[in-house]
Simulated assay, not measured.
Amino acid sequence: METVRKRELFTRHLPVAARGFRHVLQAFLVLLAGLGLAACSPTYNWREVHADGGLEATLPCKPRDDTRRVTLAGRLADMRLLSCEAGSAIWAIGTADVREAGAVGEALSGLRAALGANIGSTSELKGPASIAGATPFPAAGHFAATGKRRDGSAVQAEALVFARGTRIYQASVLRPGTASGSLREAQEQFFASLAFPVPR
């Protein structure tokens, strides 16, 4: 039953830009269950990752790396998604280049709207997306939403939505409605790690 719940969490509630990875993420969960990795691995196994466009971050688990063509701001773009599951939460970094500066704001707003819509809710602004090296955009920010899964259990989604030039990013955590202190601390560590390196 636990594997079924995790599969539902992946396929139903990931941000809209990640929904195209449904079949890939389902296969990933089946593989984890078959190998028994969730039972024998530490809750958080932090490692540094690099997303397109120079973004650096640390994730608490080894991410799956997938790319798929999606529609953003009315145009096709290749979305890269780094995602994994640890500590009862799903951790993800999605990025795509919309190639035109005028399309960035609309694409960021779309990511924000999808964050709440995919869990039957609306997202609220918690604060700015304070990412070193990011390009300032009014539509960027730290957003959160609370909703429910099909079984009625509460689920929360939080994301930093931001951009650098014409490349947009969404770093998100999808977790149970009642989160432990260690999970909240891990989320803060993940968000705080996001940065673009300063050229020397």
Results as ranks from 00 to 15, higher is better:
A101N: 11
R64T: 07
L14V: 01
S123T: 08
P136M: 07
A129Q: 11
T71D: 05
A154Y: 04
H23S: 15
A18F: 07
V173R: 14
V173E: 12
A139H: 12
I131C: 11
T71I: 08
V198Q: 12
F10N: 04
S172A: 15
A186T: 07
M1D: 12
V30G: 06
A113F: 05
N118Q: 15
G152P: 00
R150A: 14
A39R: 15
V49H: 06
G102C: 12
Q26L: 15
A77K: 01
A92V: 09
C84H: 02
R47C: 04
S123M: 07
L108G: 09
F10I: 08
S153M: 15
A73C: 06
A179E: 03
S193M: 11
A192H: 03
A145C: 05
T146E: 08
K62D: 05
P15S: 05
I93D: 13
A38G: 07
A145Q: 02
T122V: 12
Y44P: 04
A86Y: 03
M1H: 14
S172G: 06
A101V: 12
W46C: 15
W46I: 07
A33W: 11
W91V: 02
R167I: 10
F28Q: 14
I90V: 15
A92F: 09
A179M: 04
F190A: 09
Q187R: 09
A139Y: 13
G20P: 08
V98Q: 02
L111T: 01
L76V: 13
G94R: 01
F196R: 00
A154L: 13
A129Y: 08
V155F: 07
C40N: 11
A144S: 00
A186M: 12
C40E: 11
A132E: 01
A113R: 11
G127S: 05
R184L: 05
C61Q: 01
E158C: 02
L111N: 02
A129V: 11
A27E: 07
F10M: 12
G20T: 12
T11V: 15
L125P: 00
G105T: 14
A89S: 15
R69G: 08
R68C: 07
I93G: 13
G94H: 06
I90D: 08
A139S: 15
F191E: 09
L72M: 03
R99M: 11
G34P: 08
G152D: 08
T58A: 14
R64V: 09
A27T: 01
T58N: 06
L25Q: 06
D78V: 06
T58G: 04
G177L: 10
R112E: 14
H13K: 04
A171D: 05
A117V: 00
L9K: 09
T135K: 15
S153Y: 07
L32W: 10
A89E: 13
R19N: 03
A186Y: 14
G181S: 11
A171Q: 05
W46K: 03
G127T: 08
E56F: 07
A89K: 13
P128W: 10
S121D: 11
A96R: 01
K6G: 07
A86R: 00
C84A: 04
F143E: 00
T11I: 15
I93V: 15
R5F: 13
Q187S: 05
K126Y: 03
S123D: 05
W91N: 10
V104T: 13
V70T: 10
A140E: 10
A38S: 03
G36T: 14
Q187C: 02
G133K: 01
L125F: 00
G94N: 11
T178M: 10
